[in-house]
Structures are given as C-alpha cells and as structure tokens.
Simulated assay, not measured.
Amino acid sequence: MKNVKLEAKLSDEVMAFIACRKSLHLASVDQAGEPYASYAPFAIGDNCLYILISDIAVHAVNLRLNPIASVLIVEDEDSAGELFARIRVNYKVSAQLLAVDTPEWTAGIDSLVARHGSRSQSLSELADFKLFKLVPKSGRYVKGFGRAYQLAGESLAGESIDHLQDGHQKRDVA
C-alpha cells in the first residue's frame, strides 16, 4: 500500500532541492553514439527544465541530433555531509527545441531571467542561443545511503515515488 503522505513529502523535498540548485549536469549523445557530459544553468518550468545554450556548444548539437539525454542535479561537494552519498536527482529527459517568440519560448526565457538575471535575456537575443525544454520521462532521487527513490511519470516531483529496496550488500570474503 502506497504512503500518500510520504510521497507528497518526498515530492516537496525533490522540488525544494531542485529550487536551491542553479545548474545541472547534462549527458547527451553525439552522432556516433558517444556520450558527452557538460553543464548548463537551468530554470524550472511546468514539469520541465529550461536551458539556454549556444549552437556552438557540443551539447546543443547533440540535443538537436538526438533529443534523449540525462540530467543530474547534485548537492555541492563543499556542503555535502557525505561525499559518497550526496543528495541528487537524476532524470531521463526528452529535449524539445523551442521556437523563438512563441508562448513556450517566452515562458522559458522569463523563467531563466527570473532565476539568473539579465544575462539570460541578453543571451536569448543572440541568434546562436537556443532554448531547450527538458521534459522528464523518469527519475531517481537519492538522499543518502539506503534512501533512493524511483520517480515515475513525466513530472519533476514524480507522479509516483517508489522506495528502492535492493540495497548494498557485503562482499563475500573467501
């Protein structure tokens, strides 16, 4: 039986954690199927993340060729209580390139400006900068050893949350 109160608390935790981070790690795939990792400042939308990146950047090229990517938002090393168990949320996402001067473009740019200031507005006026909407397909929230949760559904907070029970096991010593 699902614990609805626990799911709601965890959903709130996930959203609060994301809200206090400013950048994300982005893993994309190039034309040859090779992985590429980078980062980007982000803003939070309605069950999505927005990133504004230049066409010159490898990850922008990759997202245009293959819109499937992975996002990691992670606790800072300097403030983490345990380096091996930093708080983090990871999403499999679908990247959608948004057309300039559409309502979705405006919403994304407004979110980035509200979160990061006028630099986002200035960059959005450059022709090589593109706005991507990252829509989660699934995710995982980890808040310590033995406290990992699967986030199901196309929602940043998870439409349903399942505690992952298959934990660490000691290695057999011969």
Rank of each mutant, 00 (worst) to 15 (best):
K137C: 11
P35E: 11
D128Y: 07
P41C: 05
D166L: 13
S28W: 08
N66P: 14
S111G: 02
V135F: 00
S124H: 03
T106L: 11
Q121Y: 14
H168P: 05
I51P: 00
V142H: 03
A60P: 02
S124K: 08
L63Q: 03
G108D: 06
S155E: 10
L72Y: 07
E82K: 15
A32C: 06
P41T: 09
R88L: 00
L164M: 14
F84T: 04
D172I: 10
A60S: 15
E75V: 00
A40S: 15
S38Q: 10
S94N: 10
I161Q: 12
L134E: 13
V113R: 03
E7K: 15
F129S: 08
S28Y: 15
V29N: 12
P41E: 02
D128F: 09
F84W: 08
I53Y: 06
F42E: 05
R140Y: 02
Q165H: 14
N62G: 04
V29L: 09
A19Q: 11
L72P: 15
S54P: 10
L63I: 11
E159F: 07
A27T: 13
N3T: 07
I56S: 11
L156Y: 02
R88S: 00
F145S: 10
L52K: 01
A107I: 00
R119Y: 05
R147K: 10
W105D: 06
K137Y: 12
Q169N: 10
F132R: 06
L126E: 10
E7T: 13
